[in-house]
Design a protein around this nucleic acid. Sequence first.
DNA 1: GATGAATGAGGCTTCATTCAT
DNA 2: CATGAATGAAGCCTCATTCAT
Lengths: 194, 194, 194, 194
Amino acid sequence: MKLKKEEKKNQIIQAAIRTFAKNGYFNSRVSEIAKEAGVADGTIYIYFKSKDEILSAIFDEALDKFVAVSEERLKSVADPIERLEAIAFLHLQYLGANRDLATVFQIEFRHNIVFMEKFTRSKLREYFRIIRETIEVGQQKKVFRNLEPKFATKLFFGMIDEMVTSWLLSKKEYKLEKTAKSLTRAFVFGLAEC
Amino acid sequence: MKLKKEEKKNQIIQAAIRTFAKNGYFNSRVSEIAKEAGVADGTIYIYFKSKDEILSAIFDEALDKFVAVSEERLKSVADPIERLEAIAFLHLQYLGANRDLATVFQIEFRHNIVFMEKFTRSKLREYFRIIRETIEVGQQKKVFRNLEPKFATKLFFGMIDEMVTSWLLSKKEYKLEKTAKSLTRAFVFGLAEC
Amino acid sequence: MKLKKEEKKNQIIQAAIRTFAKNGYFNSRVSEIAKEAGVADGTIYIYFKSKDEILSAIFDEALDKFVAVSEERLKSVADPIERLEAIAFLHLQYLGANRDLATVFQIEFRHNIVFMEKFTRSKLREYFRIIRETIEVGQQKKVFRNLEPKFATKLFFGMIDEMVTSWLLSKKEYKLEKTAKSLTRAFVFGLAEC
Amino acid sequence: MKLKKEEKKNQIIQAAIRTFAKNGYFNSRVSEIAKEAGVADGTIYIYFKSKDEILSAIFDEALDKFVAVSEERLKSVADPIERLEAIAFLHLQYLGANRDLATVFQIEFRHNIVFMEKFTRSKLREYFRIIRETIEVGQQKKVFRNLEPKFATKLFFGMIDEMVTSWLLSKKEYKLEKTAKSLTRAFVFGLAEC
DNA sequence: GATGAATGAGGCTTCATTCAT
DNA sequence: CATGAATGAAGCCTCATTCAT
């Protein structure tokens, strides 16, 4: 019973991801999501208080899952450079595996962060913390030079983030996560000829 | 006469930038823009075909101006690393000078790119080309190693882009462009301890 | 078995009275009544055909009970003035004993009478007849003067009715029925100084 | 210009009165009012913030007008009994002249008073005060006996109010205000044979 | 050109009622 | 009998756009 409820909620979320990916949040109709999910319009409101909350749920769920998976996988990676590569890989793999989810994230997430705030911001902070701590460890180990860690974190995140956006806009089909290695190399060693 | 027309059009654009920055495109009302611009609702439609076109005009104008200014300034900078720094500086300075414009860009631009396409994409391509050519020149001069130029371009853009977003979300007031130097250094020489 | 059914039906009616009293008929939800009654939404529809019918049932039951009680009590009162006072007393006592029921009656009853008609009207007519006949008897006995009986009936009813409404709106707690005596005196002897 | 606006607002109010009278407030659709008024649905919302506010406006306007007219007419009537008769006459005449307005008042007004409160209550209080003061003057002049004035006021109001309701439900067409005289006589001298 | 009242299509949401379990 | 998840019709209201003045 409880399971079935969770199932249907997920069914709606998946439908919403597809719909938002196709038209964007504001150009998506609740009735469209309902149809896509194979339920009546009103059913949506048994599981979500508002259209707005569906979007939040997408973000929350996806971020939760991503952070959980990442922390698990990163446990076994100690070397800072390897960890950065693993982070990039996980990030790219996660979004690369679901183009619709990636679209919703890249297109609607900033909107959400700026205008809605809510929980999302704190979830994201957790992710930034993971990157930052990796960099700090690298600096303690003298693997990385003393660039302000928060600053370096943003640069690294910016690189990854742009790879995702670029992949979404590209017409070519390629495995997004395969860029993780050279991205990390570029971040760590720079563009300069040694 | 013509000038006056241009003036009023600009007046509306500035009002729209403020309004969109405050609430986002979809949560802004045309009547709100009109009030902010000090004109009647209908007047908007003498200068723009639709609400949508106001947003496009903001992007087009801002990009035009930015590319024009940038190309001018970059003429005198030959060294690839200095050019990259100048590009970053100009990008950050341009958006850093107008928080509202920056907000509209960071929040609504991707939406526009994905769902509206139009001219904007080509304007952006021009900007990417400027970065890419700088990198290619650097590679010919053996200053940069042979990383795929388009790939490197995205990484560099991603770094800058994230700096802007971060600045917008930050409560601290700081000159956005002052990060250009260390951003470029990080991009060129990497995070690794030499 | 039958008893149990009657019991649950009553349980729902009592819940509906409380709910309607709180928010009015149109602003009350069937699900709210169900929760208040401690049953499932669907259960309501085993006992009532529609939300509308619950309201009708409240009126019918309350009127039935009131008329039955009144006729019983009035049997032993012969004197017209005493009868009028008894009627007022019973009316005020009945509604004064249950503020929620009184609220539903004063607030929703006219609506029902005008837009739904149904049985209610005839039940009410029976009550008006009781008053009227008392007045007619009084006139035959030369206790009352020859005012048109139906007209006098309305006046008397209007007085009582307004006492109830006023009591509902009042913040003071007082026994509603204690006004029966002076109300009747006022009706019979008027406001004039003898 | 201003006049025209006032005119259209009134046009909508009149349409709303007809619509509410026909089906009651909750069973009336805003679109129905719009059609009846010969305007688009959206136009309603230029003049009123909500459906609710239309109802309030009906009450406020009608009460304002009634109190204003009444105070004017009552100026020249000094004798308490004549004043009471004049009050009853004005009340009955006012509602008797517009069956739809009367319907809305008798059917929706209590709802409004109990669940919405707002200004309406204070407007009504003013009317009650006029009656009460007349009674008090009558008592000082020893025309009336010493019944609690507030209590007497309610009784008088209740009589009038019931005459209106009865007239609405009646199928017979008659001048409502013609009952003012005998109503007042009944109130003042009672039903008893002298 | 400028105005702003008017339009009306269409969105989000509610909720009485049903019915499979 | 009882449940409560599901339905979907329909209402209130918004707002981009038009057009008579």
